[in-house]
């Protein structure tokens, strides 16, 4: 029995004090939740998607709640690289938490440009490559579902930075393992999955889509079992760490991901409901390890009996 199990995990050259992050797009850039959550209690903070230039995002309505889920079509509004570095990075540097920046572009070249610029500033610890946002009409979406485009983006980002790079995989592909393997072959330090699942909701009285963008991406507890299956498949296919996300509400959901092979997890939609979810998940993982006599979170990883 170990009273204080080791929760630290490594993602490439980056060591996280615990395996629980907050997912991109669900925690702003940090200041939004700083009154409610001790940022230093997080394994890492993954900030909302950043591209080269400022972006206004999609028209409203941008989200719609469905049964145990949330469809969003926010459209990645953001301040661009310069705005992020100017307006948010100084705040994040003052906190003792690794910062992973989710990056995206409208062209392959833009991904490389963003990676190069963010790799040159102090305070960014890793890059998550968003190739799978379902709400962007330009190339971004295809980069996540076409293996050849996916490789081009990951190759260029890899060549543009020395930071750990983490492609975020789309769930709506025929074979998740082939994307995970491609990421590994291109020199990625980890993969994260799943992004939200393409989805749609219609008002039956007006017969209009409930989102301004017509379609969006489903997140929340509704997608958790889908994510567990895909994380299991991806983790069996690669040696690099898998960061799992999809509908985590509590420690049990996170532990399920770790058992099927995840090295780390990210809390997403639950942040909107219960801002203290991520710290509670850390404590729940710790007590689970103690209860099962495990010395570390690594000892639990991939122990699914299947």
């Amino acid at each position: 029995m170990t009273a204080t199990p080791d929760l630290a995990v490594r993602i490439g050259s980056l060591t996280l004090r615990n395996p629980v992050m907050v997912a991109s797009g669900t925690f702003g850039y940090g200041p939004e939740y700083a009154d409610l959550v001790d940022l230093a209690s997080l394994g890492a903070i993954v900030v909302k998607g950043i591209r080269a230039e400022p972006t206004t995002g999609n028209p409203t309505p941008r989200t719609v709640e469905t049964a145990s889920g949330l469809i969003n079509a926010i459209g990645l509004p953001g301040p661009g690289v310069d705005g992020f570095v100017r307006d948010y990075l100084p705040f994040l540097r003052r906190h003792d938490v690794p910062v992973i920046v989710n990056i995206w572009g409208r062209t392959v070249e833009e991904y490389g440009d963003v990676a190069r610029r963010l790799g040159a500033v102090d305070g960014v610890h890793a890059l998550e490559i968003n190739v799978s946002c379902p709400n962007i009409k330009e190339g971004s979406k295809a980069f996540g579902t076409n293996l050849e485009s996916f490789r081009r983006v990951v190759d260029l980002v890899r060549a543009s930075t020395r930071l750990p790079v983490i492609p975020k995989l789309a769930p709506n592909v025929a074979d998740i393992a082939s994307f995970a393997r491609a990421a590994e072959e291109c020199g990625s330090d980890a993969v994260s999955l799943i992004n939200s699942i393409p989805a749609m909701a219609v008002d039956i009285e007006t017969r209009r889509p409930k989102l301004g963008n017509i379609t969006g991406g489903l997140s929340g507890p509704a997608i958790h079992p889908v994510a567990v299956k895909l994380v299991w498949e991806a983790a069996r296919a690669v040696k690099i760490p898998v960061i799992a996300m999809g509908g985590i509400r509590d420690a049990a959901d996170a532990i399920e991901f770790i058992i099927v092979g995840a090295t780390a997890v990210a809390v997403g939609t639950a942040n909107f409901v219960e801002p203290g979810t991520a710290p509670a998940v850390v404590e729940g993982i710790r007590s689970h390890l103690v209860r099962h006599g495990l010395p570390s979170v690594a000892a639990l990883r991939g122990t699914v009996v299947a």
Binding site: G28, E32, Y33, T60, T63, N72, F272, P275
Partner: peptide
Amino acid sequence: HMGCGVGACLTCV
């Protein structure tokens, strides 16, 4: 129409 209430989700813009 609102999501998180604290400025993170960008629903109520």
